[in-house]
């Protein structure tokens, strides 16, 4: 009875494994779309190309939401991984928040259409690159959490590294903006866009910190 249940359990676990992998793929792809979208915006501002990228991220976000709900339901309905269920749930939800941050930042660009002076373009782009790199490293750390627990640390330290670098760039950028002759309203708007992007590596670092604890819990 339980044996046949276990055999069908193997089939169902394969499906769940795929869903988790797919969810992480969506996050990784969103970050790459985001990177291109920021580049496009800085180069051409709010063009169709940019809107298309926004739609891509939008689609990824809603697909990832579906996957997240499916994963969470299966974890609880099938009472899987009782020891790590809460941790996995927390991880998936925190990763999902990164997708919201990507989407939110691009929507802000699309709605407010900020005019970013050319001299800040390079720093905005670097900031966006650091944000994306930190998320990419976090995706690898998360994959390692599921398959190769010892490797979590190898990727986590990169998340910390990119977050620090992003902090440096954002501070430099904010100083440059507020030392400029721009109107205070524009300064505030440009600062907001720095923070929209900088929030991404900050959140990635928080998730990486929790992931490190989840990993320790699993090895005990």
């Amino acid at each position: 009875m339980e044996l046949t249940k276990n055999i069908s359990l193997f089939r169902r676990t394969r499906a769940l494994e795929n869903e988790i992998d797919e969810f992480l793929d969506k996050l990784s792809q969103s970050s790459l779309h985001f990177k291109i979208a920021v580049k496009v915006y800085l180069r051409d501002r709010c063009t169709t190309d940019f809107e298309n990228k926004l739609q891509d991220v939008n689609k990824m976000e809603s697909e990832a939401d579906h996957l997240r709900r499916a994963i969470e339901t299966k974890l609880y309905a099938q009472t899987l991984i009782p020891e790590s269920r809460g941790d996995v749930l927390g991880l998936i939800e925190n990763l999902d928040h990164l997708l919201n941050l990507f989407e939110g930042a691009l929507w802000a660009f699309s709605i407010e259409k900020p005019e970013i002076p050319d001299e800040y373009h390079a720093d905005y782009e670097t900031l966006s690159d650091m944000a994306v790199e930190s998320v990419e490293a976090l995706v690898l750390a998360s994959r390692a959490f599921f398959r190769n627990i010892e490797a979590v640390g190898d990727h986590n330290h990169k998340v910390m590294f990119y977050e620090k670098e992003a902090d440096k760039v954002s501070t430099k950028l904010k100083k440059a903006i507020f030392n400029s002759e721009l109107d205070l309203s524009r300064k505030a708007q440009l600062r907001n866009f720095v923070e929209h992007i900088d929030n991404i590596p900050d959140w990635a670092e928080d998730v990486a910190d929790r992931l490190a604890i989840y990993a320790i819990k699993r090895t005990v």
Binding site: L9, L16, L80, F146
Partner: peptide
């Protein structure tokens, strides 16, 4: 287990069968 690098979910299924 370190060598097999099983997915957490798969390891869970094997562990259940093993415990049974």
């Amino acid at each position: 287990l370190a060598r097999a690098r099983l997915h957490l979910i798969r390891l869970d299924a094997y562990t259940r069968l093993g415990l049974l």
